[in-house]
Protein backbone atom coordinates (compact mmCIF):
# COMPACT_ATOMS: atom_id res chain seq x y z
CA UNK A 1 0.00 0.00 0.00
CA UNK A 2 1.23 3.46 -0.91
CA UNK A 3 -0.29 6.54 0.65
CA UNK A 4 0.81 10.15 0.91
CA UNK A 5 -0.74 13.52 1.65
CA UNK A 6 0.27 17.10 0.96
CA UNK A 7 -1.25 20.06 2.78
CA UNK A 8 -0.69 22.23 -0.27
CA UNK A 9 -2.05 20.11 -3.08
CA UNK A 10 -1.41 23.05 -5.36
CA UNK A 11 2.31 22.31 -5.20
CA UNK A 12 1.75 18.91 -6.78
CA UNK A 13 -0.32 20.46 -9.55
CA UNK A 14 2.50 22.92 -10.26
CA UNK A 15 4.98 20.04 -10.32
CA UNK A 16 2.97 18.15 -12.91
CA UNK A 17 2.61 21.34 -14.95
CA UNK A 18 6.41 21.66 -14.84
CA UNK A 19 6.87 18.19 -16.29
CA UNK A 20 4.04 17.61 -18.73
CA UNK A 21 5.24 19.74 -21.62
CA UNK A 22 8.56 17.94 -21.68
CA UNK A 23 7.46 14.35 -21.14
CA UNK A 24 4.07 12.81 -21.88
CA UNK A 25 4.15 10.03 -19.36
CA UNK A 26 6.45 8.57 -16.75
CA UNK A 27 6.90 6.28 -13.78
CA UNK A 28 6.54 7.66 -10.29
CA UNK A 29 8.88 5.45 -8.29
CA UNK A 30 7.69 5.39 -4.70
CA UNK A 31 9.77 3.92 -1.90
CA UNK A 32 10.17 4.35 1.84
CA UNK A 33 12.16 7.58 1.39
CA UNK A 34 10.02 9.40 -1.13
CA UNK A 35 8.94 9.69 -4.73
CA UNK A 36 11.15 10.08 -7.77
CA UNK A 37 10.54 10.46 -11.46
CA UNK A 38 12.80 10.70 -14.45
CA UNK A 39 11.85 11.39 -18.03
CA UNK A 40 13.44 12.52 -21.25
CA UNK A 41 11.86 14.53 -24.03
CA UNK A 42 11.24 12.65 -27.26
CA UNK A 43 14.39 13.99 -28.93
CA UNK A 44 16.61 12.97 -25.97
CA UNK A 45 17.94 16.50 -25.54
CA UNK A 46 16.42 17.30 -22.14
CA UNK A 47 15.74 15.28 -19.03
CA UNK A 48 13.60 16.10 -16.05
CA UNK A 49 14.28 14.51 -12.66
CA UNK A 50 11.91 14.95 -9.77
CA UNK A 51 12.83 13.98 -6.22
CA UNK A 52 10.26 14.39 -3.44
CA UNK A 53 11.26 13.57 0.12
CA UNK A 54 8.83 11.88 2.47
CA UNK A 55 9.56 14.63 5.05
CA UNK A 56 7.79 17.09 2.78
CA UNK A 57 4.52 15.17 3.10
CA UNK A 58 2.20 15.46 6.06
CA UNK A 59 1.50 11.73 5.73
CA UNK A 60 3.67 9.19 4.00
CA UNK A 61 3.43 5.44 3.97
CA UNK A 62 5.05 3.03 1.52
CA UNK A 63 5.06 -0.60 2.64
CA UNK A 64 6.59 -1.89 -0.56
CA UNK A 65 8.22 -0.07 -3.48
CA UNK A 66 5.59 0.80 -6.06
CA UNK A 67 5.81 2.20 -9.57
CA UNK A 68 2.96 4.36 -10.76
CA UNK A 69 2.93 4.74 -14.55
CA UNK A 70 1.21 8.03 -15.19
CA UNK A 71 0.08 9.96 -18.24
CA UNK A 72 0.65 13.55 -17.17
CA UNK A 73 -1.97 15.15 -19.41
CA UNK A 74 -4.60 12.84 -17.91
CA UNK A 75 -3.42 13.49 -14.37
CA UNK A 76 -3.45 17.24 -15.05
CA UNK A 77 -7.12 16.97 -16.09
CA UNK A 78 -7.96 15.53 -12.68
CA UNK A 79 -5.75 17.96 -10.76
CA UNK A 80 -7.61 20.79 -12.46
CA UNK A 81 -10.59 19.79 -10.32
CA UNK A 82 -8.60 20.52 -7.15
CA UNK A 83 -9.22 23.77 -5.27
CA UNK A 84 -6.29 26.14 -4.82
CA UNK A 85 -6.09 25.50 -1.07
CA UNK A 86 -7.07 21.83 -1.07
CA UNK A 87 -5.15 19.13 0.68
CA UNK A 88 -4.15 16.30 -1.66
CA UNK A 89 -3.98 12.59 -0.81
CA UNK A 90 -2.67 9.95 -3.20
CA UNK A 91 -3.28 6.26 -2.64
CA UNK A 92 -2.35 3.13 -4.58
CA UNK A 93 -2.55 -0.60 -3.91
CA UNK A 94 0.63 -2.63 -4.42
CA UNK A 95 -0.56 -4.40 -7.56
CA UNK A 96 -3.35 -2.03 -8.54
CA UNK A 97 -4.01 -0.66 -11.99
CA UNK A 98 -5.19 2.73 -10.77
CA UNK A 99 -4.28 5.40 -8.21
CA UNK A 100 -6.72 7.47 -6.24
CA UNK A 101 -6.44 11.22 -5.80
CA UNK A 102 -8.48 12.88 -3.09
CA UNK A 103 -8.85 16.66 -2.79
CA UNK A 104 -10.18 18.07 0.44
CA UNK A 105 -10.93 21.72 1.12
CA UNK A 106 -9.43 23.42 4.21
CA UNK A 107 -12.62 23.19 6.26
CA UNK A 108 -13.36 19.67 4.92
CA UNK A 109 -16.64 20.93 3.48
CA UNK A 110 -15.76 19.63 0.01
CA UNK A 111 -14.13 16.29 -0.78
CA UNK A 112 -13.39 15.14 -4.34
CA UNK A 113 -12.35 11.62 -5.33
CA UNK A 114 -10.66 10.67 -8.59
CA UNK A 115 -9.30 7.36 -9.85
CA UNK A 116 -6.59 7.62 -12.48
CA UNK A 117 -5.87 4.58 -14.62
CA UNK A 118 -2.20 3.65 -14.48
CA UNK A 119 -0.07 2.68 -17.47
CA UNK A 120 2.69 0.16 -18.01
CA UNK A 121 5.56 2.35 -19.12
CA UNK A 122 8.77 0.82 -20.33
CA UNK A 123 11.12 3.76 -20.04
CA UNK A 124 14.84 4.14 -20.48
CA UNK A 125 16.48 5.47 -17.34
CA UNK A 126 19.63 7.51 -17.61
CA UNK A 127 22.42 7.26 -15.09
CA UNK A 128 23.41 10.83 -14.23
CA UNK A 129 26.97 10.82 -12.91
CA UNK A 130 28.00 12.95 -9.92
CA UNK A 131 29.88 15.85 -11.42
CA UNK A 132 31.92 18.76 -10.16
CA UNK A 133 30.60 21.74 -12.08
CA UNK A 134 32.87 24.61 -13.10
CA UNK A 135 30.26 27.25 -12.44
CA UNK A 136 27.17 27.33 -10.24
CA UNK A 137 24.85 30.32 -10.39
CA UNK A 138 21.95 30.98 -8.08
CA UNK A 139 19.54 33.66 -9.16
CA UNK A 140 15.91 34.69 -8.79
CA UNK A 141 13.81 32.23 -10.80
CA UNK A 142 11.61 35.03 -12.14
CA UNK A 143 14.66 36.81 -13.52
CA UNK A 144 15.81 33.66 -15.31
CA UNK A 145 12.31 33.17 -16.72
CA UNK A 146 12.19 36.71 -18.04
CA UNK A 147 15.62 36.47 -19.67
CA UNK A 148 14.77 33.19 -21.42
CA UNK A 149 11.42 34.50 -22.63
CA UNK A 150 12.72 37.84 -23.86
CA UNK A 151 15.82 36.48 -25.59
CA UNK A 152 13.86 33.77 -27.38
CA UNK A 153 12.09 36.53 -29.31
CA UNK A 154 15.46 37.40 -30.85
CA UNK A 155 17.12 34.05 -31.46
CA UNK A 156 16.80 30.35 -30.74
CA UNK A 157 20.15 29.77 -29.05
CA UNK A 158 21.53 31.44 -25.96
CA UNK A 159 25.18 31.49 -25.06
CA UNK A 160 25.70 31.46 -21.30
CA UNK A 161 29.09 32.63 -20.16
CA UNK A 162 30.15 32.82 -16.55
CA UNK A 163 32.99 34.71 -14.94
CA UNK A 164 33.61 35.51 -11.28
CA UNK A 165 31.92 38.87 -11.69
CA UNK A 166 28.87 38.09 -13.80
CA UNK A 167 26.82 35.67 -15.81
CA UNK A 168 26.09 36.77 -19.37
CA UNK A 169 23.25 35.53 -21.58
CA UNK A 170 23.90 36.33 -25.26
CA UNK A 171 21.66 35.82 -28.25
CA UNK A 172 21.90 36.42 -31.97
CA UNK A 173 19.32 36.22 -34.73
CA UNK A 174 18.18 37.62 -38.07
CA UNK A 175 17.34 41.01 -36.57
CA UNK A 176 20.61 41.46 -34.71
CA UNK A 177 22.13 40.41 -31.42
CA UNK A 178 22.28 41.29 -27.76
CA UNK A 179 23.22 40.19 -24.30
CA UNK A 180 22.09 40.56 -20.72
CA UNK A 181 24.55 40.34 -17.84
CA UNK A 182 23.74 39.79 -14.20
CA UNK A 183 26.43 40.85 -11.77
CA UNK A 184 27.24 38.83 -8.70
CA UNK A 185 25.56 40.50 -5.71
CA UNK A 186 27.83 42.23 -3.20
CA UNK A 187 28.75 39.79 -0.45
CA UNK A 188 28.64 42.54 2.15
CA UNK A 189 25.07 43.33 1.24
CA UNK A 190 23.15 42.20 4.29
CA UNK A 191 20.00 44.02 3.31
CA UNK A 192 17.19 42.44 1.43
CA UNK A 193 16.09 38.96 0.67
CA UNK A 194 18.72 36.33 -0.16
CA UNK A 195 16.46 34.99 -2.87
CA UNK A 196 16.82 38.28 -4.75
CA UNK A 197 20.58 37.89 -5.05
CA UNK A 198 22.76 36.57 -7.81
CA UNK A 199 25.43 34.26 -6.41
CA UNK A 200 28.22 32.83 -8.54
CA UNK A 201 30.50 30.01 -7.45
CA UNK A 202 33.24 29.65 -10.00
CA UNK A 203 36.09 27.26 -10.43
CA UNK A 204 36.83 28.23 -14.01
CA UNK A 205 35.13 30.54 -16.52
CA UNK A 206 32.66 28.62 -18.69
CA UNK A 207 30.80 29.36 -21.89
CA UNK A 208 28.21 27.12 -23.51
CA UNK A 209 25.31 27.32 -25.96
CA UNK A 210 21.80 26.08 -25.28
CA UNK A 211 18.47 25.94 -27.08
CA UNK A 212 16.14 28.58 -25.62
CA UNK A 213 13.09 26.48 -26.47
CA UNK A 214 14.03 24.00 -23.75
CA UNK A 215 15.08 26.60 -21.21
CA UNK A 216 11.71 28.27 -21.64
CA UNK A 217 10.13 24.92 -21.01
CA UNK A 218 12.08 24.53 -17.76
CA UNK A 219 10.88 27.90 -16.49
CA UNK A 220 7.40 26.38 -16.06
CA UNK A 221 8.83 25.45 -12.64
CA UNK A 222 9.27 29.11 -11.68
CA UNK A 223 6.11 28.91 -9.57
CA UNK A 224 7.76 26.26 -7.38
CA UNK A 225 10.73 28.23 -6.14
CA UNK A 226 11.92 31.80 -5.74
CA UNK A 227 15.40 30.85 -6.86
CA UNK A 228 16.91 28.71 -9.57
CA UNK A 229 20.38 27.19 -9.67
CA UNK A 230 22.23 26.77 -12.96
CA UNK A 231 25.23 24.42 -12.96
CA UNK A 232 27.58 24.46 -15.94
CA UNK A 233 30.70 22.65 -17.00
CA UNK A 234 32.74 22.39 -20.17
CA UNK A 235 31.05 20.20 -22.76
CA UNK A 236 28.46 18.77 -20.42
CA UNK A 237 24.74 19.19 -19.87
CA UNK A 238 23.44 22.23 -18.03
CA UNK A 239 21.54 21.52 -14.83
CA UNK A 240 18.65 23.84 -13.97
CA UNK A 241 17.40 23.13 -10.49
CA UNK A 242 14.39 24.42 -8.57
CA UNK A 243 14.36 23.53 -4.87
CA UNK A 244 11.13 23.42 -2.90
CA UNK A 245 11.81 24.07 0.79
CA UNK A 246 11.57 20.66 2.46
CA UNK A 247 9.66 18.81 -0.26
CA UNK A 248 12.59 18.20 -2.60
CA UNK A 249 13.56 19.45 -6.02
CA UNK A 250 12.96 19.37 -9.73
CA UNK A 251 16.02 19.27 -11.95
CA UNK A 252 16.27 19.68 -15.68
CA UNK A 253 19.31 18.56 -17.65
CA UNK A 254 19.91 20.05 -21.09
CA UNK A 255 22.50 18.90 -23.62
CA UNK A 256 24.49 21.80 -25.08
CA UNK A 257 24.65 22.97 -28.66
CA UNK A 258 28.14 22.54 -30.02
CA UNK A 259 29.92 24.63 -32.64
CA UNK A 260 30.24 22.72 -35.87
Amino acid sequence: MFECALIQGELFRKLIASVQDLVQDGNFMCDANGISLQGMDSSHVALVALALKKEGFVEYRCDRDVTLGINFANLAKMLKCMGAKDRLSIRAQDEGDSASFVFESEDSSRVSNFELKLMQIDQEQLGVPETQYKAVIRMPSSEFQRICKDLSAIGDTVSISVTKEAVKFSVGGDIGSGDMSLRQSESGDVDGDDSEKVMIELEEPVQQNFALRYLNNFTKATALSKTVTLSLGTDMPLVTEYKMDNLGSIRYYLAPKIDE
Binding site: M40, S43, H44, V45, A46, L47, E124, Q125, L126, G127, V128, P129, T157, N209, A211, M236, P237, Y253, A255, P256, K257, I258, D259, E260
Partner: peptide, 14 residues
Protein backbone atom coordinates in the same frame (compact mmCIF):
# COMPACT_ATOMS: atom_id res chain seq x y z
CA UNK B 1 25.91 27.38 -36.66
CA UNK B 2 25.60 25.14 -33.61
CA UNK B 3 24.58 21.50 -33.58
CA UNK B 4 22.32 20.13 -30.88
CA UNK B 5 23.74 17.04 -29.22
CA UNK B 6 21.71 14.56 -27.18
CA UNK B 7 21.97 13.59 -23.53
CA UNK B 8 22.95 10.04 -24.41
CA UNK B 9 26.37 11.48 -25.34
CA UNK B 10 26.89 12.21 -21.63
CA UNK B 11 24.66 9.89 -19.61
CA UNK B 12 24.51 6.13 -19.75
CA UNK B 13 21.23 4.33 -20.35
CA UNK B 14 20.65 1.98 -17.43
Amino acid sequence: PCAQVTLTNYFVVT
